[in-house]
Amino acid sequence: MGGKGAIAIVVALIGLIAAPLLYTAAGNGLFNKPPKPELTLPAGGGKCIEPTEFMRKNHMTLLVHVRDDIVRNGAHKPKYHIEHCKTCHTKRAEFCDKCHNYVGVKPECFDCHYLP
């Protein structure tokens, strides 16, 4: 096989892998950052069980850990439970979706779990 063929294949593969990224970039306007979401603190003025910075970074790990504990071991008194979140953060659109949309993650949680 000639060198040209190899280069063509490599370029094609890179294009294939990068296609979703390019597609998204083109859809958003190339290198055009979406505005940062404006977050409002929930009314009531309560305090989260962990510092905000920690939660921002680690909430998914906490939830996954607790998820397995609940499903597999029937734990019904876990310290971190999305039910606790729901007591203050009552609206999913305000609390979850804003940031998830901003960073472009689509968690499957709410396909099955109900959060208004």
Binding site: E50, H65, G74, A75, H76, K77, P78, K79
Partner: peptide, 12 residues
């Protein structure tokens, strides 16, 4: 450390 304080009772 966070999970070390987790309660262990309440499981099956």
């Amino acid at each position: 450390q966070a999970f070390a304080q987790d309660e262990t009772e309440g499981r099956t």
